[in-house]
Design a protein around this nucleic acid. Structure first.
Length: 206
DNA sequence: CGACCGATCGTCT
DNA sequence: GACGATCGGTCGA
């Protein structure tokens, strides 16, 4: 591993405050090694899903199934699922066993393995949409829903701190995307973005 | 720029 | 049998 880069440990993921974890993930590096190739990107957008009481969460009301059961595991593994039949959305499972908290990674700024990302997506390595949006970044990094449950402290998928400091004032909390069905919970400020970063999904701003 | 729509299929009812 | 924690293209103002 590259000097000066620290892989996040289980203690990071097992904290009780999923909002703090979602915020803390901004600026970290998401790294995958799929097909023997390393690809990575800096996290610039996340969303917290706060368990049984959160109407936007797959685990709302403690719903549990083969797919969502991964969310109930001890924090520190991946929850990847297929959305709309074609997009693989990558989440980080947090908190302790039995508490289905998760953080959806929604956008990255590409850091390494750009050529491989381009190959996987059929785009050019400079394409802004390469890792912008949860479906796009999963394709670029080779994340598939079959990888759900993968240990985040292993070699295949992990998140690291390379010492990059994000000014607290540049992290903005907003409502989550695409969860209009969640009634009053749709308005909760559970989405965190690195304000002004061009890889943040949605409207261009900042 | 905003609104709309088709693609596509595993999962849950 | 219906429905998405999306994306990218198209169409109209």
């Amino acid at each position: 591993m590259v000097k000066g880069i620290k892989k996040l440990d289980y203690a990071f993921y097992r904290r009780a405050d999923v909002l703090a974890i979602a915020r803390d993930l901004i600026g970290k590096l998401l790294v995958t090694r799929v097909d023997q190739v390393l690809t990575s990107g800096r996290i610039v957008e996340t969303e917290a899903y706060a368990g049984p009481s959160d109407k936007a969460s797959h685990a709302y009301g403690n719903r549990k199934s083969t797919r969502t059961g991964v969310m109930y595991r001890e924090g520190g593994c991946a929850y990847v699922y297929l959305c709309y039949g074609l997009h693989h959305l990558f989440n980080v499972v947090t908190n302790r066993e039995g508490i289905p908290h998760a953080v959806l990674i929604r956008a990255l700024e590409p850091v390494s393995g750009l050529d491989k990302m381009a190959e996987r997506t059929g785009k050019k390595s400079g394409d802004i949409s390469l890792t912008r949006g949860p479906g796009n970044l999963s394709r670029a990094l080779g994340l598939r829903h079959g990888m759900s449950g993968t240990d985040l402290c292993g070699q295949d998928i992990f998140i690291a701190d390379d010492g990059t400091a994000v000014p607290p004032g540049s992290i903005l909390a907003t409502p989550r995307i695409g969860v209009g069905y969640a009634a009053e919970d749709a308005a909760l400020p559970y989405r965190f973005i690195w304000q002004g970063n061009k890889y943040v999904s949605g409207k261009i701003s900042g």
